[in-house]
Nucleic acid binder design. Structure first.
Length: 229
DNA sequence: CCCTGATTCGC
DNA sequence: GCGAATCAGG
């Protein structure tokens, strides 16, 4: 098997949306988990919560005269930052016509003029909702993921629906249902220009920020919160 | 044991 | 560039 552009694209999207290397390998078929990881690294995409991210020290005064087999063996106790489960937002890369693609961006990216970071400046998005400024961005109340991303595999249940692999910059990435469920898919409507979601779901994802004093205590949506649908 | 991603290194 | 082998943490 060779890495065609299409396969690379699939790999990239799945990798960036949090699929494990095993799952990606299985999806692509005829390829090993290692191949996926190797390719992912070669592509330069690897910002991923690794289960083994301990070693950060490169310099070690210890003499390593051996030609090889020099194992650092540095059990430096490091505080482990808990890796938050990645949001389901798959920043799809469609080659060519993605005008607004400036890399892995957050949904606050403005299509036209970047709003200068000013405390009380507030702009109104194309959908008519009030934008949040950078910094006050609570993660979109994505009711999505953390359990386990399983499918992405063509199934009868999602026939005609927008699957993970169908995501691009033009369709709404709002998840419908939950990963792992047979009919898990995405909204797929035309996006509110400049946003990852359609107008309706932008209304869910971006809420007008009330003055702090009027702010209700944050609704504890532990996880697997309100179903969208 | 299982899983994960990271890294190495012969090809 | 590729990916099996290996490593290492959970």
């Amino acid at each position: 098997m060779s890495w065609t552009e299409e396969r690379i694209d699939t790999l990239t999207r799945m990798w960036e949306s949090g699929m494990t290397a095993s799952q990606i390998a299985e999806e692509l078929g005829g390829i090993s988990r290692n191949a996926v990881i190797g390719k992912a690294h070669r592509l330069g995409l690897k910002p991923r919560p690794s289960p083994v991210k301990a070693n950060a020290d490169a310099e070690k005064p210890a003499p390593a005269p051996a030609v090889e087999a020099a194992k650092p063996a540095a059990p430096a106790p490091k505080p482990q930052a808990p890796a938050a489960p990645p949001p389901i937002a798959a920043e799809a890369d469609d080659d060519g016509d993605d005008v607004f693609d400036d890399g892995p961006s957050i949904p606050t990216a403005m299509p036209t003029a970047p709003a200068p970071r000013q405390p009380e400046l507030r702009s109104v998005g194309p959908g008519g909702f009030v934008r949040q400024n950078p910094g006050e961005q609570a993660p979109p109340s994505t009711p999505a993921p953390p359990r386990r991303l399983v499918p992405a595999r063509p199934s009868e249940a999602i026939a005609g629906k927008t699957s993970l692999l169908d995501l691009n910059d033009r369709v709404c990435k709002w998840p419908i249902g939950h990963p792992g469920e047979p009919d898990f898919h995405f909204c797929g409507d035309k996006v509110n220009p400049g946003f990852p979601y359609c107008v309706e779901h932008c209304g869910h994802a971006y809420q007008a920020q009330l003055p702090r004093r009027d702010r209700r205590p944050p609704p504890p949506l532990p996880y697997g919160g309100p179903r969208v649908r």
